[in-house]
Design a protein around this nucleic acid. Structure first.
Lengths: 220, 220
DNA sequence: AAATGTAATCTTGCATACAAGAACGTCGTT
DNA sequence: AACGACGTTCTTGTATGCAAGATTACATTT
């Protein structure tokens, strides 16, 4: 979206890189992030690294324990459920507002994103579906026409990204996910905010529940 | 609330102090925050100041423009409305969950906080009412039994604090605010989640609207 | 052999030094 | 007198140095 923005502060770039590594699972939950190590790897001093880590603390991606360094945040299944519960509500809100405020452009974007999901779904490619699913949800956020809500929803969406990705791959939720999307698009297009909200709420909450089951069964 | 927690990092304390100054209006929107000045005032180096400022950026209380320093965030009336719209939804969610999950302890706390508001309301003391109103809302958040939601709601509540305070004082909303609280308490106690949600949504959204009117009329 | 206390080492947190970009004022030119 | 270019100064961004807390390993004692 705003990938074109110039980052004059080094720490911003570093944050994005580290964020990416956490999201893609290269840095696993519980792993320690050594300031000096990262500094030498990225060929900068510890200062920008520290800044990046602090930013990630506020994003919730890492935990910093005073004098004991930073570790990639371990989100407990319980907390993950709580987060999905809030995510569900935010998405529901986006859907409700989208249904009320939908422009022609919004609708075009939404249907286009939905079609793109269909293609990835047919090919059965979880990674590609993941990316297009993301765009689909972003289209709904955007259609809410509430800039602050868009930011909050996007932030939480990203924060849950790693877990959602895992779930799509493992649980093969592609089929149901896609059909749920169809109903959501129709509800929003029809201007039925309450229905859209309810469908989205369920669409998200089920992910949280399934994920909790998955985690519990793997006894992580 | 958690003032008893040990802050081993200096920047945490500094953040709280600066946050307080912004919330209470000592640092007004648009005001420039000079790192060196703050460093000499608090008798620390620029490093922890910079860390505190960065944290505040993520809280949304200040804006940092690269190489141009930090200023207290100017929230436009439009954006403020957006934020209140989201706040309304978060509070509604808290209310809905609270109605479903209310324990006896929750109910006691809620009624107690409500009674405290009544006292301040009778005395017509806006400042005291503001503080007790805060506790009332916190009691609802807590009753949701969703730790993540509690954190998010509290954060946004704080972020809007300065504006809510101003509004209570100027618009003399004490009377209506209090009577709305009564209805909310009853709905939650009765276990009617949807009603509680709807009442809370309106209770908050009206603040946003009124505030926008206020701002517009003052042509700030 | 296990456990506890102590010392060495490592890492973080803060201070200071240095470099680079931005704001401001001055001087010169038209 | 007004506008523009240049240089100074100020502030931020980054690097490094130093001190204090935390971890770890070892030695001593039971």
């Amino acid at each position: 979206m705003e990938s074109g923005s110039l980052h004059t502060r080094r720490s911003e770039q570093l944050r994005e890189i580290i964020e990416e590594r956490i999201a893609t699972g290269r840095y696993l939950p519980g792993m320690r992030l050594d300031e000096t190590e990262l500094a030498t790897e990225f060929e900068v001093s510890r200062t920008p690294i520290r800044e990046a880590l602090m930013q990630l603390t506020f994003t919730g991606l890492i935990d910093i324990r005073p004098r004991r360094g930073a570790i990639v945040a371990k989100i407990s299944p319980h907390r993950l459920c709580e987060m999905f519960e809030v995510m569900a509500e935010l998405e529901a809100m986006c859907g409700r507002l989208a249904a009320r405020r939908l422009t022609e452009m919004d609708q075009r974007n939404l249907r286009e994103a939905h079609k793109a999901c269909e293609a990835a779904h047919d090919e059965g490619d979880p990674d590609e579906y993941y990316r297009r699913n993301e765009k689909f949800h972003m289209a709904i956020y955007a259609a809410s026409h509430n800039g602050f809500l868009i930011e909050e929803a996007t932030a939480l969406h990203r924060r849950l990204g790693a877990y959602r990705r895992l779930q799509l791959r493992v649980l093969n939720r592609l089929r149901t996910s896609y059909s749920e999307h169809s109903a959501i698009v129709e509800a929003i297009s029809a201007g039925d905010g309450e229905l859209a909200a309810e469908l989205l709420r369920k669409h998200i909450i089920v992910q949280g529940e399934r994920f909790a089951d998955l985690i519990a069964s793997l006894s992580i």
